[in-house]
Write a protein that binds this DNA or RNA. Structure first.
Lengths: 264, 264
DNA sequence: GAGTGGTCTAGACCACTGT
DNA sequence: CAGTGGTCTAGACCACTCC
């Protein structure tokens, strides 16, 4: 015999899935007092069912306003063939590079749908950062923070922190200036302006519960997982030239990775 | 002012992180009545703090026994260079293939540490399966279910469902027989025995909360995310020859994907 | 002010585990 | 059996939103 809260959660889940009247995306549920009475359970028990559905990302509660069926969020695909695509464009003319950016390609949206934000800062490398680059702790590093969101949504679907050795990019002062963002052609073009060719991209990631800070920044519920990804760019002489940490909302990100094998 | 349950959760979280006495992996916490009194809160409030920590995978409760600090689980790496490695071995001698299997390579464990289970079944393709292969619904398909676990853990760290067209493998009757498992050399060797060369591997995945069935099979808490991965093998004439769905426990899986770029 | 969800309490009863 | 966690209740009080 399943618990009452579990049964209620299942019923509501089914109604949302089937798009029952009053359970379509964006619609507001009746108050918890009313619904708890309808289901003949106490309010705390009913709330427990609601709690489950919140953690599944199906509904959202707003204090003082109500409980709402969540609109399925626009999924974002992330494909690893983007890296080759970006490399192919890195040496193209600026006009060519301006035509479409990597984000537009990923999401299928135009530049007008997107709101872009970048912050630059020079810091001393801590143990983690220094370890990735293989340099001494304290080496000067350029830290860049990026946020991208849709024009009509209030939370970013992409938050990333990128790190470069200041020494690497010193040859081109523009690379130290956040005002140049969004930079057409992306990081691989930036690296090309200082004579660096990227040989391969190494991405490592895990799924984990979001930290409190991440729930805020990405507008997700605690309990919905995030994909924490670290992307490392390695140049043709096997040096780490850039890496970035990206937090992706797990429930709206679809990763697509193709591994090409050599022929027999 | 943070909520009481949140403060308590933070305190316990910190004690586990610092390995405070009584908060080391595997140790049992005092009863909830005792601890609720210690923290000067009601039992339900204290339970709410426990609930948070369960969802973070830090502790586990067992009805009638107690609340336990969870041992960090053995992480499992999954690298995409495994595919090339497997391809290189696909045409090797059986003796060579027997030396190590793919799972042993991934986990760094020997065959003696692993318990392996396979079930075969011939089915008619439904819409999902037929869609991936690009064949009519109802085409005969070989469905293979695999489970792998460590000898000293009671839940598998890998559950996968693999699908092959019966027509594809009919040339080698051994491929229809579950008794031949574990098959040294894996799927790519099996395909080689019927004249198929794999050209590339396409993997798509998302992070999502586990279904009820998955929590049971993988021994994870509801609330801890899983990585749901679909791996598609495509042969040198661009046909889908096999695909498999794998559910990986998000909190113990580390994905490592390298994308090699062509040189300028 | 009326209505909403968020926090917290005190206690009942049940189901499971160990001895 | 005693002790544990799991479910459920009835109700108080608060914080927030909207009118």
């Amino acid at each position: 015999m399943a618990a009452k809260y579990d049964q209620i959660a299942s019923k509501i889940r089914a109604m949302i899935r089937d798009g029952a009247p009053g359970y379509t995306p964006g619609s507001r549920l009746e108050g918890e007092n009313k619904l708890a009475a309808d289901y003949k359970v106490s309010v705390p028990t009913f709330r427990r069912a609601i709690e489950m559905l919140k953690n599944e990302g199906l509904i959202d509660t707003e204090h003082g306003r109500g409980t709402f069926v969540r609109a399925p969020r626009r999924p974002v695909e992330r494909r690893n063939d983007r890296h080759q695509w970006e490399k192919d464009r890195a040496r193209a003319s600026e006009a060519e590079r301006l035509k479409t950016g990597a984000t537009e390609k990923d999401t299928g949206l135009t530049i007008n749908d997107l709101v872009f934000h970048a912050e630059y800062e020079e810091i001393d490398a801590g143990a983690d950062i220094a370890g990735v680059f293989g340099v001494p702790v304290g080496t000067r590093v350029l830290h860049r923070n990026y946020q991208t969101r849709h024009h009509d949504e209030d939370t970013p679907f992409n938050v990333s922190d990128s790190y470069l050795l200041v020494e690497t990019v010193a040859g081109n002062p523009d690379l130290l200036d956040a005002e140049q963002e969004p930079w057409p052609g992306g990081t691989q073009n930036q690296l090309w302006t200082v004579g660096i060719e990227v040989d391969r991209v190494e991405e490592t990631f895990t799924a984990r519960p979001p930290t409190a800070e991440e729930t805020e920044r990405l507008g997700i519920r605690p309990g919905v997982a995030v994909l924490a990804l670290r992307k490392v760019l390695i140049d043709t002489s096997d040096r780490v030239v850039e890496f970035s940490d990206v937090i992706l909302p797990g429930d709206r990100t679809k990763m697509i990775y193709t591994t090409q094998l050599t022929r027999w």
